[in-house]
Amino acid sequence: MRLIDILDRITRPLLLLLVMSVDRILTLIQGRVGIDKMGYFFVLPNLLIFGIFVLFPMLLNLYYAMTGGTKLFPADRPFVGLDNFATLFDCDDFLSPNSCQEDLFWRGIFNTIQFVVLQVSAIVLFSLLTALALNRRIIARGFFRSVFFYPVLLSPVVVALIWKWVLQYEGVLNAIVELFGGESMRWLLDTNWAMFWVVFVSVWALMGFYTLILLAGLQSIPPELYEASSIDGANTWQDFRFVTMPLLMPTMFVVLVLSLIRAVQMFDHIFVLTGGGPGTRTQLMVQYIYTTGFSNQIQLFGLSAAASMVLGVSLLILTLLQLRLGNQSSLA
């Protein structure tokens, strides 16, 4: 007798017993609540997890945002209403962070906007180009797919440390620059280069994931459509413009939404690579929230919670906007 048959013989009665017990319980519940309300029962476990780990912390965060002091326990914290939000938005000129009471918050906002625009654009563009390339019949396609995906598997700390060693003054990049007769630079100390490099490193580290999604999208396009367009005399560009892009658009929106959320939440790569520097040039909102609430000796949980509310609401608006645009585009 084969092993699989033995296992089948043992597990079959057990599974049957389990199914019968579950069926009995569910029948009992259905008898009480009625078939119409059984749906609620099935989503209850997920709702519970969502409530405990997502909704409750969100509400708690809202409460913290409306309290002051330095005590940790909510009951010990004095209610201050919207004072923390007023502190965050206390600015003479919103375009000049130095005129704001919480200048670091506004520096974080401006840096985040710049980072998100650059990083998301780069991720979408390069992921698309890479996916298109990897979707073609090229030599060692499997190897190249692995190569592009490999950085995704690395810990953000490892990624940042590798690039820190590459970019430091006595690092690999300067060695190459000198090899070609150039002069060594302090790449991360220059305020403009620093932003470029944090975008570059994060794109390098994350684009493999989005490439994979787009690749799946490309492979789901029926080849008959390309055959039809070929019969109609379409060239490669027209294939891309009128077949690939429209059918890839829903996947593109998924990539856009996911990469946008990840970009706004970016912390780990930058924290290790530049520490938010030089100065605060690459300090994003999440780092401001972390330092205000946790890394200072006097921890301002209220201000930190208020800043995270602002971040959360901004993200929500952006995502809704994107989804709306996505829906309009697919309807068109």
Partner: peptide, 10 residues
């Protein structure tokens, strides 16, 4: 040292 203070957190 030009990088130690500007390029670190903490």
């Amino acid at each position: 040292h030009p990088e130690m203070w500007p390029l670190s957190e903490g």
